[in-house]
Design a protein around this nucleic acid. Structure first.
Lengths: 119, 119
DNA sequence: TCCATATTTCCATTTTTATGGAAATATAAA
DNA sequence: TTTATATTTCCATAAAAATGGAAATATGGA
C-alpha cells in the first residue's frame, strides 16, 4: 500500500458517519446489510448515505452487491488489514509502539484494561 | 478511545502532508526534529506547516517541545498504538481480518511477501 | 540594544467535502 | 401495465479544510 493510497483510506474513515457505517458493516459480517438498513440505523438521509457509501467503495473499504431490488453492502476486511499493516509497519518504526496490539492474538484480550505504558 | 475521537485521529492522518509529517517523525525517533527541518524535507511553507503541526498536535499524534529557539516535534506513539488497537478491535470484529498483522511479532516480518488471502 | 533566526498567528482566498430535497433509474410484484 | 420500493444521480447550497504571504511573537547572540 503506497502512502498516498493510505492517506485516502484514512481520510475515508476519518468521518464520523463513514466510520460508523464501516463499523456497522463489520458487525454485520460477510453477508452485509442493505443500504436502507444502514440509513435507518444511523439516521442518514438517502442521498447523503449514497455519497458516503460510494466514497467508502471507491477506496475499497466496502463493496456492494445487488440482490434483486436491494444492494447488500459488506466490509472489505482485506483493505482494513492492509491499512493496519501499513500503520504498524510505517508508523511505528519497528519497535516500542505496539504494547497493546502485540498481545492481540485473541482480539478479546485487546484494548482491555492494560495500562502498560510504551517506551 | 471513543469513536468520535478515533474519527478525528483518522482524519488527521488522512492528508498526504500530515501523514508524511507523522512518518518523518516516527523515523526521527523520540528526539524528534525541529519544525524547519520538516518544512525543508517536505517542501511545505511555514504557515501551512504550522497549520498541519497544530492539527496533529491537537489530536495527540505528535507533540512539540521548545528548546531555545527551536521546537522539537516528535511522534506520540501511544496515540498511534491506541488507534491501531481501536481499528483491530472495532473494525475487525474478532476474526478473519488479521492474517498479516497477527504474524507481526517482529515488525520486519510484517507486510512482506505474504499473499495469504483472508476469510 | 539591535539583529538574526524560528515559529506562529492573522487573514483573505481557494479548494474540497458534505448535505439533502427532488427527480431519475432499477427491479419486482400486483 | 401500473404501482411500489430501493437506490442512485442531479444539483444547489452550505460548511469545513487547506493554502501561503505578510506581520507578529519568541528567543538568543553580537
Amino acid at each position: 500500500m503506497e502512502t498516498l493510497n493510505a492517506a485516502e483510506i484514512l481520510a475515508a474513515l476519518g468521518h464520523e458517519s463513514r466510520l460508523a457505517i464501516f463499523r456497522l458493516l463489520v458487525e454485520a459480517g460477510p453477508k452485509g446489510i442493505i443500504a436502507s438498513a444502514i440509513g435507518e440505523q444511523l439516521s442518514i438521509p438517502n442521498a447523503t448515505l449514497s455519497f458516503h457509501l460510494s466514497h467508502l467503495s471507491r477506496v475499497g473499504l466496502i463493496k456492494g452487491e445487488r440482490e434483486s431490488r436491494f444492494i447488500h453492502y459488506s466490509a472489505e476486511y482485506g483493505t482494513m488489514d492492509d491499512l493496519i499493516a501499513f500503520l504498524t509497519k510505517n508508523c511505528c518504526q519497528g519497535k516500542a509502539c505496539l504494547p497493546k496490539t502485540a498481545a492481540c492474538d485473541t482480539l478479546e484480550s485487546c484494548c482491555s484494561p492494560n495500562p502498560a505504558a510504551p517506551e
